[in-house]
Design a protein around this nucleic acid. Structure first.
Lengths: 245, 245
DNA sequence: CGCCGGCTTCACGACTTCTTCATCGACTCG
DNA sequence: CGAGTCGATGAAGAAGTCGTGAAGCCGGCG
C-alpha cells in the first residue's frame, strides 16, 4: 500500500540514513538496524512489509540473513550490493532475494524497486485474502470497509488498522506496542494509552455491548485480542506461537 | 479471463521489468528476452500469443525481428519505440507491426493496446468489455470517451485515467499512491495531492453536485473510490476476481 | 512569439481524526 | 479485603486530511 513498514539493515550509518530519508520521503515508515543479527530479530518481532538488506554486514552477513528469512517468511527482500559482479547478483537471487540494487543507486531507483516489490507482494496477498472473516466480522481491506453481520460500518484509518492487525491472528494477544508497530508504522511515536482510546471508539462502533465485548477483548496486563469465532474450544495458544519473542 | 502468453523483447532491464509488471497485472503471463536473436528463438520455440518488441535492441534490432517474424507467422506484434517521429511509426507498420506505442507510455495505454490486439487476433475469449458501465456512467476506453446518462463528457488524459482505474473495481477504495501507480505508471513521481486536483476537476465535469459526489467518493484517511451503482441488481462481483489486476 | 490548455504545486480554510490528560472503575495479588 | 496497578471513558487541544482557488510551468498551436 501507500505506506509500508520497511526494515533496513545497513551497517554504515551514513548510508543507512540516506536510505531512510529516501524511503520516508515516499511515505514509508522505516526501522533501521545495523547488523545481521538485529535484522533477524527485528524482522521476527516487528513483521515488516519489506526488508532492505545490505550484503556486507557484521554479525551475520546479508546473504545469510536473506537465506534464513526466506526459510521462515515470504517477506519481500531487496538486496543492496556494493559490487556489481554477476556472482553477487546470482548469489543474491539464489538465496531468495526478490530483487537487488547495486551501489551507487539513485533515490528514484530505490523508490521504484521498493514500489514494484510492494506492489507485486500486494497483488499476491490481495488476490487471496482480500477479505478477512472472523465470525460475524468481515474486514474488507480492498474496500476499506468493515461489516458486522453484513451491515457496513464506517471506521477511521487507525481503527481499521488496529482491527486488521488483530484479525490477522484471531485469538492471539497483542501488546499495545505491537499494535502501534504494526498498525501505525515504526516511526509512529505515541503513548500506549492512545491504543486504548482507539479500541474504545472501535468497540462503540462494532460491539453490541461495549461493556462485554464480543470481538475486541482485553487481555489484562498484556493488551488486546480478537475473539476467535468458535466458542467451543478455546485452544490455549496464549501469547506465544507467532514467532514474536 | 483474458490470459495470454506474451513475449517481451526489451534490452533495458528496468524497462523490461516495468512492461512485465504491467502485463502481469492484466493477468497475462510474460516471457522476457533482452535481444533480437533471443526474441526470434523464443518466438519460434514458444509460440506466444503476442510479441512486444523494442525497436532498439542489440543483436538484431526490433524492426528486423518484426520483419522476419511477420514472414513466418501472423502473431500480433506491438512495437515499442522511443522516438516519436513519423518515420519510425511508418517504418514500423511497414515491416508488419500491428500496432506501435511510443515511450513514455502509460500502463493503461499498454494494457489497452495489448488487449485490443489480442481481441483482434481472436486469440483470447472476448470476455473483456470495452465499455465499463457504473450506473449512469459509461467509460469507453476504446474511444477515450466518457458519458454520463448518455451525454458525452470531454475529459483530460489524467482525469480519464483516474476514472478508469476507479471504475475497474467499483466500491474499492484506492489510495492516492495506487491511483498514481495505476493511472500514470509507477515511474511517475508526483505529489499525492496532485490526484486531489484531478479528482476535483473530474467531479466538476461528471458530478451533478460536486459537494455531494454521486460517483467519485472520498474515503477519508485512505483515498477515493467509485460508488457502486445503487441497489437493484447486485451484480455478483463477490470476492472473486477483485484482487489487484 | 504569445496564447491556451493541461499538469503540478502551493496555500488557506473547513472539517475530521488523533492524541493526551484526568478521572473513575475493574482486576490481581498478597 | 485492601493496596496497587491496569483499563475504560469523556473531553479538549493538537494534528492530520481534504476541498478549493490560484499560480507556475510546459508544450502545442495559431
Amino acid at each position: 500500500m501507500s505506506s509500508a513498514r520497511i526494515l533496513v539493515a545497513e551497517d554504515d550509518p551514513k548510508q543507512a540514513n540516506l536510505v531512510r530519508v529516501y524511503l520516508e520521503r515516499e511515505g514509508h515508515s522505516v526501522l533501521l538496524v545495523s547488523d545481521g543479527r538485529a535484522a533477524l530479530d527485528q524482522c521476527r518481532a516487528r513483521r515488516p512489509d519489506l526488508v532492505v538488506l545490505d550484503v556486507m554486514m557484521p554479525a551475520v552477513n546479508g546473504l545469510d540473513v536473506c537465506r534464513i528469512l526466506r526459510s521462515e517468511s515470504d517477506v519481500p527482500i531487496l538486496l543492496l550490493t556494493a559490487r556489481t559482479t554477476e556472482d553477487d547478483v546470482l548469489l543474491g537471487l539464489d538465496v531468495g532475494a526478490d530483487d537487488y540494487i547495486t551501489k551507487p543507486y539513485s533515490p528514484r531507483e530505490l523508490a521504484a524497486r521498493v514500489r514494484a516489490l510492494l506492489r507485486r507482494a500486494g497483488a499476491v496477498t490481495a488476490g487471496e485474502q482480500e477479505v478477512l472473516r472472523v465470525g460475524d466480522l468481515e474486514i474488507d481491506a480492498g474496500r476499506f470497509e468493515v461489516r458486522v453481520a453484513g451491515r457496513p460500518i464506517a471506521l477511521t484509518a487507525k481503527e481499521f488498522g488496529i482491527l486488521e492487525v488483530l484479525a490477522g491472528h484471531p485469538g492471539r494477544a497483542f501488546t499495545r506496542a505491537q499494535i502501534i508497530d504494526r498498525a501505525f508504522g515504526f516511526d509512529h511515536y505515541v503513548l500506549e494509552r492512545t491504543v486504548d482510546a482507539h479500541v474504545m471508539n472501535l468497540r462503540r462502533k462494532i460491539e453490541v455491548d461495549a461493556a462485554a465485548p464480543r470481538y475486541v477483548q482485553t487481555v489484562f496486563g498484556r493488551g488486546y485480542r480478537l475473539a476467535e469465532p468458535a466458542e467451543g474450544a478455546p485452544a490455549g495458544e496464549g501469547a506465544a506461537g507467532d514467532g514474536a519473542p
